[in-house]
C-alpha cells in the first residue's frame, strides 16, 4: 500500500492554508485526522498533488460552548468528544455517537469536521449533526459563510464546499433545558462502517415535543433527515402511538440498498427499530412523562 507522489504542506495559519488550497484547487486535499484520506491515498483511490495539513494551525481545536451553542473546531478529535462531560450533559446525541465511531485508534486522530467534509453517506457524524440541526462554517477566498447542515451534503462524498473552502468549525445550536438525544448504530464489528445508524434528538416543552431531529446513516446517498417523522413529532405528546408512528415514517424516509450488510428491507426495518428505541431513550433522558 504505497501512495502516489504528493507534496506536503504544513501551514501555520489558516490564511496560508487557504492560499495553498486556492493554488492547488481540486488537486489539493486538506488533511486533518487523515482517517479517511490516508487509506484512500494508500489504495491510490485518491492521488492529490498537494496535501495541506491543518494540524499546526492554532485555534482549530476548540470544543466550547458559546453564544447560541457548541462550537467544534476543525481539529477536534472524536476522542475529545468521547471524553467531554459537556457533551454528556448537554449534547447527548453527540456524546452517544462518539464512542461508536470506528475504533479507538481512529477516534484518537479522526476529527468531527473532517468526517463531515468527507461527506460519506456511511459517516456517523453527519446524521448526528442533521438531528441536532447544526451549521457548518467554512472559509474560502471569498470570506466566511455558514451552511445549514441539511444543505451541506450534496451526494455521496460530495458537499456544498467550494474547492477553495475549508470547514473551520461546526456549530450545534443550544438544545434548551429539557433536551436529549442518542445515536444507535448497527455495525458488523467495531471499526466497521454503519449498516444503519439513527441519530435522535428531542427537545421538550410542557410535555410536548418542541423539536425532534432524526438523522439516518447509510440508508441514502447522503446522511438524511427523516423530515416527516420529525414533523409528525413536533408539538406531539410522546407516547407509544406517536413514537411508533414516527418510527414508521423514519423507515419510509430510508432508501437503502441491498448489499453484504443486509437487504434493503432489513435496513429499513433497523431504521424503524432504532428510531423507536432511540426516541424512547431520548424521551426518558429528557424527562418526558
Amino acid at each position: 500500500m504505497y501512495p502516489a507522489k504528493f507534496e506536503y504542506f504544513p501551514p501555520r495559519t489558516l490564511e496560508e492554508a487557504l492560499s495553498l488550497l486556492a493554488k492547488y484547487g481540486d488537486e489539493g486535499k486538506v488533511l486533518a485526522g487523515g482517517q479517511s484520506l490516508i487509506p484512500l491515498m494508500k489504495l491510490r483511490f485518491a492521488a492529490p498533488r498537494a496535501l495541506i495539513d491543518l494540524n499546526r494551525i492554532e485555534g482549530l481545536d476548540q470544543l466550547v460552548e458559546e453564544d447560541g451553542g457548541l462550537r467544534i473546531g476543525a481539529l477536534v478529535r472524536t476522542k475529545a468528544c468521547e471524553r467531554s462531560q459537556l457533551l454528556r450533559d448537554r449534547y447527548r446525541a453527540l456524546a452517544d455517537a462518539a464512542p461508536q465511531i470506528s475504533d479507538p485508534i481512529v477516534r484518537n486522530r479522526g476529527t468531527v469536521v473532517g468526517s463531515l467534509a468527507h461527506a460519506d453517506p456511511q459517516g456517523d457524524w453527519g446524521s448526528v449533526m442533521l438531528a441536532v440541526g447544526a451549521r457548518v462554517e467554512a472559509r474560502g477566498s471569498g470570506g466566511t459563510r455558514t451552511i445549514p447542515i441539511e444543505q451541506f451534503f450534496q451526494g455521496p462524498f460530495a458537499s456544498a464546499l467550494e474547492p477553495d473552502e475549508i470547514v473551520t468549525s461546526v456549530v450545534v445550536p443550544d438544545p434548551g433545558p429539557r433536551a436529549s438525544g442518542t445515536y444507535l448504530k448497527l455495525e458488523r464489528k467495531v471499526g466497521d462502517f454503519a449498516t444503519v445508524g439513527v441519530a435522535v434528538h428531542l427537545s421538550l416543552d410542557n410535555g410536548r415535543v418542541r423539536r425532534a431531529g432524526i438523522g439516518l446513516t447509510a440508508v441514502a446517498p447522503t446522511n438524511v433527515r427523516a423530515t416527516k417523522a420529525e414533523e409528525a413529532l413536533a408539538g406531539a405528546e410522546l407516547n407509544d402511538a406517536s413514537i411508533r408512528n414516527a418510527a414508521e415514517l423514519a423507515a419510509q424516509a430510508a432508501e437503502p440498498r441491498s448489499d453484504l450488510r443486509g437487504s434493503a428491507d432489513y435496513k429499513r426495518h433497523i431504521v424503524q427499530v432504532f428510531t423507536e428505541r432511540g426516541l424512547r431513550t431520548a424521551a426518558e433522558a429528557a424527562g418526558a412523562a
Binding site: 489504495l43 475504533d103 458488523r188 464489528k189 467495531v190 471499526g191 466497521d192 462502517f193 453484504l260
Partner: peptide
C-alpha cells in the same frame, strides 16, 4: 472479490 481488504473482510478484534 468482495473481501479484498480489512474493511470488507472482517476479523474479530478484542472488542468482539
Amino acid at each position: 472479490c468482495i473481501g479484498s481488504n480489512f474493511m470488507d473482510y472482517l476479523l474479530p478484534t478484542s472488542m468482539e
